[in-house]
Design a protein around this nucleic acid. Structure first.
Lengths: 224, 224
DNA sequence: GGCCACACGTGAACC
DNA sequence: TGGTTCACGTGTGGC
């Protein structure tokens, strides 16, 4: 029963070919080499010796091909692959995403020239320029999250006042198990700017970027 | 043939459970429901009617479980998932990794370019300083609730800063379905005073006094 | 020969 | 209704 030949996993003899959707090319065998291995024909008493392909045989083949192609592409963008297997490829991708997100956060904080100790000293005058570091994502820097120390962050939010908006921000902070160490809010006509000094307890891992994006989606002006 | 039930993909009725290696828990069925469907026993002429589990049945089950767990974890760290499917999850992860890498590159270049340029970036400058404390406010009525109009109140809270205290206040406000219209907080060494302008939605009935008492019990100093 | 990772075909559930 | 996605059990090749 000639199965599809395996793609010679790297393992010890690391080949590291620039494999790019070559799986698709492997699927081009069409309907050529079919109709053999006539054994145990039991399902239907039709005269043909073939296996009565089960309605979605090639569709499933194609789906598997696409999935494997995506895994290969994923393996191509992740720098350090530990083991040449699907499972570890996914695990490495997860770790890489987390590392990249933390790196972005750290770089943004460095770029924002955060006067960290001035803010941590609660009570002293604090002056900050809320600047949009990069208009990288769709929101224009209305939320900034700047790491301070171990689990502490400065959180700056600039918004236009709307009904129930601050409540949603509070709910988001509650849901992410965030302790608010201090908060300063200034409000002027129609606008408000809040400066949180927050602390997170457990594995903050990557959830801080999630929290930042969530807050951004909350305070961003609704698309007119 | 009772297969494993499917995990009710999000799609329209999005549930968004915090799924974390719940796949592993689903794999704990062990070797319980086996031994049925005795049809076409052709492989070995043993007397038992069971299917002669092919030596690596549960190993394969475990492998599938690990792989699905990793896909779920991957879906957890990627912010915007388009479709709740394995293939698009991997595709989104690939796109997200590429975007993050470009973002890191851009941030690094911006950081390396001119360190003093951050001040010239666009953005509304804001400056806030906390007031000098007039250290004569020792009123033990730490919570004041002043009705303003229909459903609006002024809420003044004075407290000594403690860990997690403000979070509890926020939770209390959330639980009482309170909309925060505006908030000003001033903090000085060890103390903070917050001025909420809040609004309650539905039948506020008597709950406002409940809320005030709850807040008082939260912010009151622990009896030494 | 056991273990591990994989590809395969298939029934079933969901649009 | 098909089309699509999924889990399942199994065969097989490489350590």
């Amino acid at each position: 029963m000639p199965r599809r030949p395996r793609a010679s996993r790297g393992g010890s003899g690391g080949e590291e070919v620039k494999m790019e959707d070559f799986v698709e090319s492997m699927l081009n065998l069409g309907g050529g080499g079919e109709g053999e291995e006539s054994e145990e024909g039991e399902q239907l008493p039709a005269a043909d010796a073939t296996q009565y392909k089960s309605k979605n045989l090639d569709a499933e083949r194609r789906r598997r091909g696409r999935l494997n192609t995506n895994i290969l592409k994923l393996r191509a963008v992740v720098p350090n692959i530990t083991k040449m297997s699907k499972e570890s490829t996914l695990a490495d991708a997860i770790g890489h995403i987390k590392k990249l997100q933390n790196q972005v956060l750290e770089l943004q904080s460095q770029l924002a020239d955060s006067p960290g100790e001035a803010w941590e000293k609660q009570g002293s005058a604090s002056c900050s320029e809320s600047l949009a570091p990069t208009d990288n994502i769709h929101y224009q820097g209305q939320v900034e999250l700047i790491p301070l120390g171990s689990c502490k962050y400065n959180l700056k939010i600039f918004w236009t006042k709307r009904a129930g908006l601050f409540t949603k921000v509070l709910e988001a902070l509650c849901n992410y198990n965030v302790q608010v160490l201090s908060l300063n809010t200034i409000t002027y006509y129609g606008y408000a700017e809040s400066f949180f000094c927050i602390e997170v307890k457990g594995e903050q891992d990557v959830v801080m970027v999630e929290l930042r994006d969530l807050l951004s989606s909350i305070v961003e002006v609704p698309s007119i």
